[in-house]
Design a binder for these strands. Structure first.
Lengths: 216, 216
DNA sequence: CGTACTTTTGAATCGCATCAAATCTGGTGG
DNA sequence: CCACCAGATTTGATGCGATTCAAAAGTACG
């Protein structure tokens, strides 16, 4: 496996110790395929290289409850020390995953100080991001969510999107139409400057209310 | 400090090694008080015993962006190994916190295998819960969010609420009115059985669509 | 050049938020 | 024990904003 190139595109993999890397197996995934099922004995820790994997729990009524959706990065980090998987993992979009034997993964955590610390930092950072996302999704309006995103994910009021706006809309819990319309409005009223993938939150107050209507 | 009683009410504290416990300081908190500010050198890891603490980032426009809201449990877990705090921590509801010196906390993580593993498990579990919550908040309707909650937080379609419904509504990203009304409707159409704090998702299909309208 | 996907705009609808208010609850103090 | 208060619970009416459905134009890719 070409780890050089892989780490280039997936920085999170850099912390994996060489010994553990050698045990990893790459596997291409097809839509609908299942990586594991609820109750399966836990054998592997997965890393999503491409595509999308979903952790789902199936209800009595045949409905799917999505617990997590991963498009790049470690997957089901919480499972690393349990005996069995607690959900099904289904491929939602074709791609590829890396499989690390859980046994070796745990051993590396136990013995490799650097790896362990990196893993701790990784978990903590993911948790921070996820919590911020929850707060964002709790906001009621599209405008609030967009501004929250820029303030929390960006630097100094500027974000550079690495995904399509449609995907951004999904991350914000909005339809893409709502996102497009709100972006346009915020740009029109001077709240945002938009330059392709760079979204800039203007320094001046976003409220310029006393303008009657939309002009005469 | 009476750790016996504290651990009784706060199981998460059980994993803290005795040596670290002795270094903890309890502190009562008043609404509006700030535990730390953005840029402060990181000295303590906090645990919220009662009340509510918010991690907020202030925007140029004077708006507050809430990054996290904690009502019991460790707080800002992600900060444990950074040099400075990246947000302000303000008390939203009066209560009390425990302060653990970050230095000792890190040392305990490095030396105490049991504690370290428990912390790893704790982080992973929090991450799982937070991700599931994000998925839930991405759902568009009150009904879907309620069912998702029961399926993901409950056991076998049954949850016992430990909080008021108003607080539950906030966690679901709904107003309490919307929650009350939807619960009532789901109970009326047989989707849910509600017995005080026990909410039970009926086994039979919640969809009985071919009934034309709302009857004639 | 055609296909698939994103981006963009339009129009209509519906569900949730919002504002209001009444009832119920638990807890406090007289 | 009762009066009283703060908060939760519940119901009603109204409006807005996001969803939904639809369709056109732009873009990337083979």
């Amino acid at each position: 496996m070409d780890w050089e190139a892989l780490i280039e595109s997936q920085p999170a993999l850099a912390v994996i110790p060489p010994k553990l890397r050698e045990l990893a197996a790459r596997r291409d995934t097809e839509t609908g395929e299942m990586l594991f099922r609820l109750g399966d004995r836990l054998r592997d820790i997965f890393y999503v290289v491409a595509g999308e994997i979903r952790l789902v729990r199936r209800t009595r009524n045949g409905m799917d409850i999505v617990m997590q959706r991963s498009r790049g990065g470690f997957f089901a980090e919480a499972s690393f020390n349990t005996k069995v998987y607690h959900c099904d993992a289904v491929v939602a979009r074709p791609g590829a995953v890396l499989r690390f034997p859980a046994q070796a993964f745990r051993a590396a955590l136990a013995t490799d100080v650097v790896f362990r610390n990196a893993w701790l930092v990784h978990l903590a950072h993911e948790l921070l991001k996820s919590r911020a996302r929850c707060e964002r999704l709790g906001l009621k309006s599209a405008e609030q969510r967009i501004i929250h995103y820029i303030e929390s994910e960006g630097a100094d009021g500027i974000v550079t999107l690495s995904e399509s706006r449609k995907a951004w809309a999904a991350e914000l819990g909005l339809t893409h139409e709502a996102l497009y319309r709100t972006l346009r409005r915020l740009q029109a009223d001077g709240t945002l400057d938009i330059d392709a993938d760079r979204i800039i939150l203007s320094r001046r107050k976003k409220r310029t209310p006393p303008v009657t209507g939309s002009a005469s």
